[in-house]
C-alpha cells in the first residue's frame, strides 16, 4: 500500500530556505555593476536550469532502470521527473527571456544554452505527449523509457549544434559563475540549495500521487 510521504519536515525547511534566499537575492547581494538590477534574476535562472537538467538526467536513468527491472516505481519516477523538468525548463526559458530583453535588447536570441533548453523542452513535451497517447501501462512505460534515454543522449549533440548555429567555435566553454564575487557566489549556492529542496519535495509528492493513482485503480477492480 502506498503510504503518504510525510514531507512536512522538508516543507518547513524549504519555507525557511525560501525566505533566506529571497532575502539574499533582494537585500544581501550587491547589485551587479554593469547589468544592474536585472542581474538578480540570475539567482533563479541558473538553479532552475541546473535542476531541470538534473531532472532530465533522472528521466534517462529511470528509463534505463525500468527497461532492466520492469518495475512500476522507476516508471513513476521517470514521469514525475519529466513533468517537473518541463515545468522548470519552461521557467528557465521565461527567466532567460526576461534577462535577455534589457541586456541583449531582445526577448529571444539563438544563444547556445538557450537553444539547448528550447530543444530539450520540445523533447520532453514530446515525452509527455507520448505518455498521454500510449495506451496501456506496460507499453506506455516501455516506450517512454526509450524516448527518455534517447532524448538525453541527444543533449551533447544539441549543444554542439546550437554553437554551430551561431557560428561559434564548438570547443570553447564559457564558464559563467567562475568569476563571481563571494557574496554573489553564496547567494547562488543558497538559491541552488533551495531549488534543489523544492525539486525533492515536488518529486516526492508527484511520485506519491502517481503510485496512489495505481492503488486507486487496483482498488477499483475489487469493487464488483
Amino acid at each position: 500500500m502506498a503510504r503518504g510521504f510525510d514531507d512536512r519536515a522538508i516543507a518547513w525547511i524549504l519555507l525557511v530556505a525560501m525566505v533566506v534566499s529571497l532575502y539574499m537575492v533582494f537585500m544581501y547581494v550587491p547589485t551587479e555593476r554593469e547589468m544592474g538590477i536585472i542581474q538578480r534574476i540570475f539567482y533563479f535562472h541558473v538553479p532552475l536550469a541546473w535542476i531541470s537538467f538534473l531532472a532530465f538526467l533522472m528521466v534517462c536513468i529511470a528509463g534505463i532502470q525500468y527497461l532492466r527491472q520492469r518495475s512500476r516505481w522507476w516508471d513513476a519516477l521517470g514521469t514525475s521527473a519529466a513533468e517537473i523538468g518541463v515545468l522548470f525548463s519552461t521557467l528557465v526559458l521565461i527567466t532567460g527571456s526576461i534577462w535577455a530583453k534589457p541586456i541583449w535588447g531582445t526577448w529571444w536570441t539563438w544563444e547556445p544554452r538557450l537553444v539547448t533548453f528550447l530543444i530539450l523542452w520540445f523533447i520532453y513535451v514530446g515525452y509527455l505527449l507520448l505518455r498521454a497517447a500510449a495506451g496501456d501501462d506496460e507499453r506506455k512505460a516501455r516506450l517512454a523509457a526509450v524516448v527518455g534515454i534517447v532524448g538525453f543522449l541527444d543533449v551533447p549533440l544539441v549543444f554542439f549544434s546550437a554553437r554551430l548555429l551561431r557560428g561559434l567555435s564548438p570547443v570553447v566553454f564559457t564558464r559563467q559563475g567562475a568569476g563571481l564575487a563571494p557574496p554573489m557566489l553564496w547567494t547562488l549556492l543558497v538559491s541552488l540549495a533551495t531549488f534543489t529542496l523544492l525539486f525533492v519535495l515536488l518529486l516526492r509528492q508527484r511520485l506519491f500521487l502517481e503510485l496512489a493513482r495505481d492503488e486507486v485503480e487496483s482498488l477499483k477492480e475489487l469493487v464488483p
Binding site: 523533447i123 500510449a134 495506451g135 549544434s161
Partner: peptide
C-alpha cells in the same frame, strides 16, 4: 514508437524533429 500509440503518425514529427535537430543544423 508512434505507430504503437493512439495518435499514430501525428506523434512522429513531434518526437523526431527535436531529437533530429542537430542533424538538421
Amino acid at each position: 514508437i508512434s505507430a504503437q500509440t493512439r495518435l499514430r503518425e501525428i506523434l512522429l514529427p513531434l518526437l523526431a524533429f527535436p531529437v533530429a535537430m542537430p542533424a538538421l543544423v
